[in-house]
């Protein structure tokens, strides 16, 4: 019988092992860099093309929070690594080393959450630095207060962390790494923006709009989620989706045969 303390120790060991594993895998670095690059690219494009009025706090918040939507890419990150366990059959040494599958899955998802949190922090901070530098070079003042900046960074990081857990759960459920990654990429890049425009009731609940809402942003004109959820509600929706997927992944993993 596994005690709670034993279970927690197992989670801790798997968490440490999986974090090391991510550090030792080049594609993890590429995906994290891609997420940060996406955020920076969004800021640069919006500043260059839309000529954001720096004195307008709302516009600046919308700009920075939009870059936080890149946290949705961490869903892809989670999928690549969780489904990759089945593609490369590294799931076999994992369950041989730790046959108690629920603590093992918990540790695995916790590692993705930590990686997502760090990536989100770096990505959102990089966007802020670029925006600050751009506006300074233009001679515009940076009108956001410290509280707003912290909210944007924290919201982006939490969105990314939860996205990684969501992706890890989906990857565990689907197992087919390529199919799952393509499906999620198509959803994030094509279906989500189109649905957000076409179905107003959906717009606030899409992953990108939830990311913007979590970053304390106001919606960009014509952008996804023109009526954003309040951030606590956005956190509940995003977190709840991740928890539901994680529970489903746990239920399936517990009885799954590994080959």
């Amino acid at each position: 019988m596994t005690t709670r303390a034993e279970g927690l120790r197992t989670v801790g060991r798997v968490l440490r092992a999986k974090l090391f594993e991510l550090r030792a895998t080049p594609s993890a670095w590429w995906l994290a860099a891609g997420t940060a690059g996406y955020g920076v690219a969004v800021v640069v494009l919006l500043l260059a093309l839309l000529d954001v009025v720096a004195e307008d706090e709302g516009a600046l918040r919308a700009l920075l929070a939009s870059s936080g939507g890149g946290g949705a890419l961490l869903v892809l990150f989670g999928i690549v690594f969780a489904a990759g366990e089945y593609r490369h059959r590294t799931i076999i040494p994992l369950v041989l080393a730790e046959p108690r599958r629920l603590p093992a899955l918990t540790g695995q998802l916790a590692a993705y959450a930590v990686a997502g949190l760090i990536t989100g922090l770096v990505a959102t901070s990089a966007s802020l630095v670029v925006a600050f530098g751009w506006l300074s070079a233009r001679g515009d003042p940076f009108v956001l207060g410290a509280g707003a900046v912290v909210a944007i960074v924290a919201g982006g990081a939490v969105h990314a962390a939860v996205g990684a857990v969501l992706g890890g759960s989906v990857g565990t459920l689907l197992r087919n790494q390529v199919a799952a990654a393509i499906a999620v990429f198509v959803y994030l890049a094509m279906v989500d923006p189109v649905l957000a425009q076409a179905v107003p009731a959906y717009g606030r609940f899409g992953p990108t709009a939830l990311g913007i809402a979590l970053s304390g942003g106001v919606p960009a004109p014509g952008g996804p989620g023109q009526r954003l959820l309040p951030w606590p509600l956005a956190a509940m929706v995003w977190g709840g989706t991740a928890v539901l997927c994680a529970v489903a992944a746990a239920a399936v993993t517990r009885r799954r045969e590994i080959s």
Partner: peptide, 21 residues
């Protein structure tokens, strides 16, 4: 068959196992 990630080193593969175990 193989049960390791091709992009990780042999040592990293074993270190992951050792940590879990």
């Amino acid at each position: 068959g193989d049960t390791f990630h091709p992009a990780r080193s042999g040592r990293a593969h074993l270190q992951v196992l050792a940590t879990i175990g």
